Simulated assay, not measured.
Amino acid sequence: MLFHVLLRALLFELFFQHASAASNASASSSIRAIYLFKDVLKSNTTSLKTSGFNSVIIFGVGILENGDIMYYSNTPGSNDTLIASDGGYVGGTALSDKVRSFKTGDTGINRIEISMNSQHVRELTSSPGTGAETRLYRNFKALKTAWSLDAVNNDDESLYDVTSTVAFAKMLGTIGYKYTGAPYTNSDFWKNVTTQSNNGLHEPNLLLDRMYLQCYDGGSGNDPGSWQTALGMKVVPLVWVTNDSKPSQGTTATQARSKFTSWNSKSAVAGGGYWNDYDIEKMGLSYTEYGEVLTSIFP
């Protein structure tokens, strides 16, 4: 009798754990993102981890002419740092520990991306190419491991070369990355990149699985619904938080709530996000307020 009681208790516990896991997965299915413009060694990691965001995109990573990778400083008092060279991680343990910590402990973050433009991508994918023996491939593989990365975000705003972009995306996919875009214009380019990168692939195994649509500054007139139709996939609209760089493009938490609610009601989007953490901290804004906007609209 006791055996059967214990067995039932064990089965109930297993069922509860399974149900809880499924519930948590469902609860975090919407994308709640924030771009990290500030040096991650100096940003408020605790607030970023506990304010409702589930995706962080680290801005300022770039490829050098020889295929090495830099993390460029956008913060006074910080220095540019070489983070991958000749197939190895060289950015130091303090930086790698800080980045990896976004997904550990008391956190809602389950995805870390790095954002870069297309500088040197066309030249390097042409020669020496994207094979596993190349410096470019080995550097991105080493960085993925060191920083526990999930995706590379393409912030191309000038080159727009489909062939090299797709070749680069597929190389990253071979390593184990996802690939994402951050368009503000040129929907034809992004449509071609999306179609060719995902050719033959289906959900949930898409290579290019997210589009973070800039809906501020040069993209202030963008309509997420129109972009979703053009791309054939849902997008994540981004707004710029209150800032002193371009105040007219700033968005308060209240204004963000209105924008995200309107976009999502007209044409359901994949989530929402912000540019950027540097301004939140510089302007003394509230991570909690901005994060709560996303959790309430995109649970």
Results as ranks from 00 to 15, higher is better:
196 Q>P: 02
201 L>S: 07
214 Q>R: 11
141 K>C: 04
207 L>R: 04
12 F>E: 14
258 S>D: 12
228 Q>W: 02
233 M>G: 01
134 T>Y: 12
110 N>I: 11
163 T>I: 08
78 S>M: 05
51 S>N: 07
230 A>F: 00
263 W>L: 03
214 Q>Y: 10
16 F>S: 11
45 T>C: 11
125 T>D: 05
21 A>N: 12
183 P>K: 03
80 D>H: 15
298 F>W: 06
254 T>R: 06
225 G>K: 04
5 V>Q: 12
158 S>I: 03
56 V>T: 01
291 G>F: 01
248 S>I: 05
79 N>L: 14
267 S>I: 06
43 S>L: 12
150 D>V: 06
33 A>S: 10
149 L>C: 01
166 V>A: 03
33 A>Y: 06
36 L>H: 07
31 I>D: 09
14 L>Y: 07
259 K>V: 08
252 T>A: 07
158 S>W: 09
290 Y>V: 04
119 Q>K: 14
136 L>R: 09
233 M>H: 01
236 V>P: 01
84 A>S: 13
279 D>T: 12
286 S>G: 02
211 M>D: 02
205 N>K: 05
91 G>R: 08
26 S>M: 13
17 Q>Y: 13
285 L>Y: 05
291 G>R: 01
179 Y>V: 04
177 Y>H: 03
299 P>W: 09
110 N>L: 06
115 S>A: 15
65 E>F: 12
23 S>Q: 13
1 M>L: 12
195 T>H: 05
256 A>C: 11
169 A>C: 06
47 S>A: 15
196 Q>A: 05
4 H>K: 13
288 T>S: 13
34 I>A: 10
218 G>D: 08
62 G>A: 15
158 S>L: 03
16 F>N: 09
214 Q>K: 07
231 L>G: 00
35 Y>S: 10
132 A>L: 11
92 G>H: 11
119 Q>V: 14
90 V>G: 15
195 T>L: 08
54 N>R: 06
29 S>Y: 08
176 G>F: 04
13 E>H: 08
170 K>A: 03
4 H>R: 15
91 G>T: 13
78 S>Q: 06
18 H>T: 11
91 G>W: 09
51 S>E: 03
134 T>L: 13
297 I>P: 03
94 A>Q: 13
51 S>M: 06
242 T>P: 05
46 T>S: 09
203 E>Y: 15
191 K>G: 01
123 E>T: 14
160 Y>A: 06
55 S>I: 12
116 M>L: 14
40 V>D: 10
149 L>I: 00
